[in-house]
């Protein structure tokens, strides 16, 4: 039964304009970066790119990770439950031989698979574009671990969006609140790092690492640092100043935020009444 809900959720999310718009923006951004580096070669750009041109697949693979992939994840998951309430379609499913848990798990997994598929498409696009513009790419055997780290890191904000969607039952408010958590924790994290640099008090770094954005944002960059010669690309793509940490720390924080948010969302759905269409 869950597989039917999974397929339904993927179809439903793709039909949404908000999700489609974010995907298109991300793709344009991705293509734009390769086109601008590949086509508008000033001597300065060329001197920067030449040493890393056979590693530029990494730029496309990590580019969505900076922020956009988390917004796509949020956009999918915050509407996952809330839109069913807004459209009144939740009644249709829960009056069928589907348990609340099967429905919630199917919605969660379906949305997550869709987010992974969107990212996979971006990765394929990066590989093609980097090859077309900059020729043969090297060290591609790092790709699976980076790919896995990105799709794992998506879980934090995917789960937070899912929880707010279920608890608030309004898609726009859920998207807004989840986005505020994402942007807010990125900004607060940057401020804490700045304060740490001024004061040299390590507590600020510890707090910055404990914020929801850190684990989700940082893990793929930590993994990518293992690619020889990737320093410039990683540095360029880490838009916001961030605290250094380990893989296990970031995995731990991702797990904590994902598990807690998902559990809260599921518990809310399992124990609350289903109201009539809310808007």
């Amino acid at each position: 039964m869950i597989e039917k809900v999974i397929l339904y959720e993927m179809k439903r999310a793709v039909a949404r304009k908000k999700v489609l718009t974010l995907i298109i923006i991300t793709l344009i951004f991705e293509i734009g970066v390769y086109v601008s580096i590949g086509e508008f070669k000033t001597p300065r750009v060329e001197s920067l790119v030449r040493p890393i041109q056979d590693l530029l697949w990494l730029a496309g693979v990590l580019l969505p990770q900076s922020l956009l992939i988390h917004f796509i994840a949020l956009s999918i998951s915050s509407g996952s439950m809330s839109e069913e309430y807004e459209q009144g379609t939740v009644d249709f499913f829960l009056t069928k031989p589907i348990t609340r848990m099967q429905f919630a798990v199917g919605k969660y997994v379906g949305g997550y698979i869709l987010a992974v598929l969107i990212y996979s498409f971006m990765v394929i696009l990066s590989l093609i574009l980097s090859y077309l513009f900059f020729g043969k790419q090297v060290d591609l055997y790092y790709l699976p671990s980076i790919f896995l780290s990105v799709i794992f890191s998506i879980l934090t904000f995917f789960s937070i969006g899912f929880m707010f969607g279920e608890v608030l039952r309004r898609s726009s408010i859920a998207f807004l609140v989840s986005s505020v958590v994402l942007i807010g924790s990125v900004i607060i994290g940057a401020v804490l790092i700045f304060v740490d640099r001024l004061t040299n008090v390590s507590t600020f770094i510890a707090i910055a690492q404990a914020l929801p954005a850190w684990g989700g944002d940082e893990l793929p960059f930590i993994v990518a640092q293992g690619v020889p010669g990737s320093g410039l690309i990683v540095e360029a793509l880490e838009i916001f100043p961030t605290a250094q940490g380990t893989i296990s720390m970031s995995v731990g924080y991702i797990l904590v935020y994902s598990v807690v948010s998902t559990l809260l969302g599921f518990l809310s759905f399992a124990h609350r009444d289903i109201p009539k269409k809310v808007s």
Partner: peptide
Amino acid sequence: KSVFKRVGYIQELPNLP
């Protein structure tokens, strides 16, 4: 929930996907 295999339900204002 298996009992809903044998139940048909029409909402006041049908809200369908």
